[in-house]
C-alpha cells in the first residue's frame, strides 16, 4: 500500500508543482520583484508623490527561478503525499474518489493550507512588517491542522451536529488571532501588497485543483488492478 501512495503522491505532486511554478513565475514573481525594489530602497514610496506603477523589473534569473521551480515541485510532492494518504484512508472506508471528485479534495486542501491561514495571516510580500517568525509558524501550523479537522467533520460527519461542530476549529484560530506586529512599517504601496496576496492565493488554488485531479487519477490507476 505504501509504495502505491508514494507513487501516486509523487507523480501528482510533481505535475502540480510544475504547474504551480509556471503560474508563479508568470503571475507572482513580477509582483515579488517589484516589492523587492521597495524593500531594498531602489524605489521609495511616498504617499503624496506616489511611485511608478510600472518600474523596470529584473527579468528571468536562471539560478533563482530554477531553484523556485525545484522547491515548488518539492513542496507540492509533500502536499501530494498528504492528499493521497487521506484519499487512501477514505477509500478503505468505502468512499470512492473519481478524478473529478479529486478536484474537490484538492480545493479542500487549498482551503486548509492556503486560504484559512491567509484569512488572518495574508501571504507576505517581501518588505512587509510582521510579527515574530516562530510565533507565526506555530499559528500557521495550528490553523492548517484545525481547518483540516473542521473540513473533515463537515465532509464526512454523519449528522448535522458533526457538520456544525466542524465550524468550531475553523473559526477558532481567527478568534484567537494571528501574531501581528506592534507597528506597521512596510515601505510598499498597498497596491503591490494586495495584488501579491491575491495572486499568491489564486495560483495556489489552481495548483491544488490540479493536484487533486492528478492525485485521484494516479491513485485510481495504482489501485485499479490490485
Amino acid at each position: 500500500m505504501l509504495p502505491k501512495i508514494l507513487t501516486s503522491g509523487l507523480f501528482a505532486g510533481f505535475c502540480a508543482g510544475l504547474i504551480a511554478a509556471l503560474l508563479q513565475l508568470i503571475f507572482v514573481q513580477p509582483v515579488l520583484l517589484h516589492a523587492e525594489l521597495y524593500e531594498g530602497g531602489d524605489l521609495i514610496y511616498n504617499m503624496l508623490e506616489g511611485a511608478p506603477s510600472q518600474p523596470d523589473i529584473p527579468g528571468f534569473d536562471a539560478m533563482r527561478d530554477g531553484l523556485s521551480v525545484l522547491f515548488s515541485a518539492l513542496i507540492y510532492v509533500g502536499y501530494g503525499l498528504i492528499l493521497v494518504a487521506f484519499m487512501s484512508i477514505a477509500n478503505a472506508q468505502g468512499i470512492a474518489i473519481s478524478a473529478h471528485q479529486g478536484i474537490v479534495w484538492g480545493l479542500a486542501g487549498f482551503v486548509t493550507i492556503h486560504l484559512a491561514p491567509s484569512f488572518s495571516l495574508p501571504p507576505e510580500v517581501p518588505g512587509m512588517a510582521s510579527a515574530d517568525l516562530a510565533a507565526r509558524q506555530v499559528w500557521w501550523w495550528g490553523t492548517a491542522v484545525a481547518t483540516g479537522v473542521g473540513l473533515a467533520l463537515i465532509a464526512f460527519g454523519r449528522s448535522a451536529l458533526f457538520m456544525a461542530a466542524g465550524a468550531v476549529p475553523m473559526v477558532a484560530p481567527h478568534l484567537l488571532g494571528a501574531p501581528e506586529p506592534a507597528v506597521f512599517t512596510g515601505p510598499l504601496p498597498p497596491e503591490v501588497a494586495s495584488l501579491f496576496a491575491v495572486r499568491a492565493l489564486g495560483v495556489s488554488m489552481a495548483a491544488w485543483a490540479t493536484l487533486g485531479l492528478f492525485a485521484a487519477y494516479f491513485w485510481q490507476r495504482e489501485t485499479q488492478d490490485a
Binding site: M1, G9, I75, I82, S88, G94, Q224
Partner: peptide, 27 residues
C-alpha cells in the same frame, strides 16, 4: 476505486500515516 472488501485497519492506516509523515516532513 474501492479496496477489495474491508482491509484491516493496520494495512490501510499504517501506510497512510507513513506517507503523511513524509509529506509533512517535506513541507
Amino acid at each position: 476505486v474501492q479496496t477489495s472488501a474491508k482491509s484491516t485497519a493496520k494495512s490501510t492506516v499504517l501506510p497512510a500515516v507513513m506517507a503523511l509523515a513524509i509529506g509533512l516532513g517535506i513541507i
